[in-house]
Nucleic acid binder design. Structure first.
Lengths: 346, 346
DNA sequence: GCCTCGTCTGAAAACGGTTTCAGAAATTGT
DNA sequence: ACAATTTCTGAAACCGTTTTCAGACGAGGC
């Protein structure tokens, strides 16, 4: 009934527990054969609790994300998991629901149960990374920075550049009235994507009506409402850059409800690709990034950091993004013929 | 540097470790005030390793799924997580990549680290549930059964009824040449959805050409290939029931590539709803089910089972599904006028 | 003021491993 | 065959908690 202990194995094999322990850890031992048989027969597995009590290591890492149902974070989890699958670490997963207080709770709880943590903080000014640093838990931040606290290993993507190239794609199609549905501004992706958007317009000296920046909060409903507001404007935009995947769904739903046509009436660029993007009508132009790679890289950095005893100085990696051109962008209705012709050639 | 132990707290508060332990577990203690202060000041947190060594409980549950990037399983994880968030259990997550051998590995590894397990087995005849039963780990199966072994608590959905109502919806639109892209037949959902499909056709005495059942393996690529084969048939179907979400994406991509139009040339019903389903053109008719609820319910059953010391006999819960009618189904091209008119009224 | 009773306390023994230490056995060299 | 090594072994300490077991202390009854 009760799981067998190392003592049972020792007894079965007629040796001391020390010998069994040594054999299991790889030492040469005379009774190796008998011990292996006893282990197999009793189906013995060492107790992780006892092992980690002695060693101080838990053999586990935590992975804390704002929302596992977001395909991006699901991909990150998968990428991270594919790395640990080899190296014998198991993964604790926790959702924070984009809430700082919930994040503080789960971090506090996980703190003692893991050897390291992969964290996508809910906001930039939240205290979790600092807490982890204080507790001496190796930590790698994913997708979001913690500028208030010290340096952390971080795996980001080029949010600024991605947003900028999205907007530039729209500009090159002849658009000038380009709006954005922005994410939460106190998160790294939200902030930089908004800045990239602004920078692109700035570079082309295009004035930006304040109502062209709509807060969508990275939520589908926010994207829906924002798009509704944009389309209700007396002088609506001819193109919209939507700053993440879930808001894009909401925005497209609003567009569908209103009856606006893409790309004839409105051009749209989203952020983050999805298998569905390709089969929408029209297929959606998006900024794509290596999602699983981002999770895998973060996990590799975490494992390395856990080995190197936190001596090495912290690294900040920025992954490249790329524009996937599909058919959701075209020239604006009132565009000069040049741009219209140019777009038609694509 | 090193985390403080209960001994440090005892020293700081000027009492014995026993007293500290008692206070933390809720006993009335004279030095309660001083101890609390010492705990707060040292930021003491009991070591889970030591606690579980003593108690035999780990305070963790495992959640083993075939593919976390499948939105269904992501939703299940979220639902399960929302339950444990209250009750103080943390979640180990593992992916099996739909592989029996990988599943055996992770189950074997997790076995000793958790008090209970939520498992969506990769196939129906795999040995993991039996192994868990042998080891005395409370287990609840999600979405997939283990008929070979004994009874387990299981949370299923009405796959048979869902498939059947999907096909009946197509029949009521006047279709008679209805194909299916089936999942892996040795999994519960794959098996029952196929049977439900067959049952519906049988009930209407419709003969079924063998090539109308295409194996898609629950993968996007399989859905793509299957749809290509169906459309290349000399006498192709006028409607297709696709047995899961990922295959549906592939199938729709094939349809788009070929240039077939929905629902004019082909009607389609998918299994599992998705935010994107509504904004496809045309919006996709699907069988929907309570995904997060399925995860939450499974977790509730697991926690209950963990309390009741596995005495109670096992329960098998089947959740209802429902058809969401959208615009991807219409009468077949060659349908009799009656059906065509009837469909138009909808 | 003394005895009894109940409450609170600290020492010590687990829990199941790993690791140090010293001694036993096996090996080598002569 | 004996000493000097080397390899292997078991006893015991330890990791940080919880829990049992007595004993100390204070309160209440006579």
């Amino acid at each position: 009934m009760k799981p067998p202990t190392i003592f049972d194995v020792a007894q079965e094999a007629g040796v001391s527990v020390s010998t069994v322990s040594r054999h299991l850890r790889g030492d040469r031992v005379r009774a190796a054969e008998r011990i292996s048989r006893a282990v197999a027969q009793l189906r013995y597995r060492p107790s992780p609790a006892a092992q980690s009590l002695k060693s101080g290591k838990t053999g586990a890492v935590a992975l804390v994300v704002p929302d596992i149902t977001n395909p991006f974070f699901a991909a990150v989890v998968r990428g991270a998991e594919s790395i640990t699958a080899q190296g014998g670490h198991t993964i604790f997963l926790a959702n924070t629901d984009e809430s700082d207080t919930r994040e503080a709770e789960v971090v506090e709880d996980l703190l003692t149960r893991v050897d390291g943590m992969l964290l996508a903080p809910a906001s930039e000014d939240n205290p979790s990374p600092q807490r982890l640093a204080d507790a001496g838990v190796p930590t790698v931040l994913i997708d979001r920075e913690a500028p208030s606290t010290g340096r952390f290993d971080t795996v980001l993507i080029d949010n600024h550049g991605g947003a900028r190239s999205a907007v530039e794609h729209l500009l090159s199609n002849g658009h000038e009235r380009i709006a954005t549905i922005a994410g939460t501004v106190d998160s790294t992706p939200g902030r930089f994507r908004l800045e990239g958007y602004r920078a692109a317009l700035d570079a082309h000296s295009i004035e930006l009506p304040p109502e062209f920046v709509q807060p969508g909060g990275f939520k589908e409903h926010g994207g829906y409402q924002s798009m509704l507001r944009l389309l209700a404007l007396p002088d609506p935009p001819t193109a919209v850059f939507v700053a993440n995947n879930t808001m894009t769904i909401g925005a497209l739903r609003a567009i569908k409800d209103i009856g606006v046509r893409i790309p004839d009436d409105l051009s749209v660029v989203g952020f983050d690709d999805h298998p569905f993007s390709e089969i929408l009508d029209p297929p959606l132009t998006v900024i794509d990034r290596p999602m699983e790679e981002q999770g895998a890289l973060a996990m590799r950095m975490l494992l390395s950091r856990m080995r190197n005893d936190s001596s090495r100085e912290s690294r900040r990696v920025v992954l490249d993004v790329r524009l996937i051109e599909r058919a959701s962008c075209g020239p604006p209705r009132s565009a000069p013929m040049g741009a219209r012709r140019q777009a038609a050639r694509i």
